[in-house]
């Protein structure tokens, strides 16, 4: 049953995830890009929020949270020119994770999200630059995404274990 209390709790949780994601994105911005050719390619800390939202709240809240944190993060820390990359990455990662979680566990889903995020960014770059040179980076970036995605999947499992010891996610 969805009463007002549940609704308020869901809203609060969503807002909290957006806030956490924006902070994570900001922290990530402090780390120098390990791959200067593609500034958008990172550890993907903020994707953790999409992942958490997917498992805790469902698919629709997850995409809402992803878009909200991307818009907020971009206007707070980045320039508008970074928006197409971030949006494409966030949306494709979400879509792939929605499908992936029917088959794989959390680390696997997280990995798929990270790989999809990079692929989307490369595709946007190729489109904006009007050159296919950047496709050359796909294998290298995919391997990096595998590592970061898998590790973040474990972070998510740990986070989930701890959160479930509290009452934060009950009746949600």
């Amino acid at each position: 049953m969805k009463n007002n209390r549940t609704l308020a709790k869901r809203l609060t949780t969503q807002a909290m995830l957006v806030a956490a994601a924006v902070v994570l994105g900001g922290i990530e911005r402090l780390i120098p890009p390990f791959f200067p050719a593609m500034p958008g390619v990172k550890i993907g800390l903020a994707n953790l929020a999409t992942l958490a939202a997917l498992y805790w709240l469902g698919e629709i809240p997850a995409i809402a949270i992803a878009v909200a944190r991307i818009l907020l993060g971009t206007f707070l820390f980045a320039s508008v020119s970074a928006l197409p990359y971030a949006l494409a990455g966030g949306v494709l990662a979400w879509a792939v994770m929605c499908v992936g979680r029917r088959v794989f566990g959390v680390p696997g889903v997280s990995l798929l999200g990270a790989v999809a995020h990079n692929l989307a960014q490369i595709c946007v770059s190729v489109w904006l630059l009007d050159s296919t040179v950047l496709f050359m980076y796909i294998p290298f970036l995919t391997i990096i995404a595998c590592a970061t995605g898998f590790v973040l999947g474990f972070v998510m499992l740990n986070l989930d274990n701890h959160i479930r010891k509290t009452s934060l996610l009950t009746n949600i």
């Binding site: 498992y55 805790w56 979680r101 088959v103 794989f104 566990g105 959390v106 680390p107 696997g108 990995l111 798929l112 790989v115 796909i138 294998p139 290298f140 995919t142 391997i143 595998c146 898998f150 999947g153 499992l157 479930r164 996610l169 949600i172």
Partner: peptide, 29 residues
């Protein structure tokens, strides 16, 4: 929401990891 729903599917996850890494490495070379 039951935990079993997304409890790690270790075998699948590890196979996925290996498959993607091998594919990417092959492409790279």
């Amino acid at each position: 929401m039951s935990d079993a729903k997304y409890y790690p599917r270790w075998r699948r996850d590890v196979i996925l990891l290996a498959a993607v890494v091998v594919l990417a490495a092959a492409l790279q070379f």
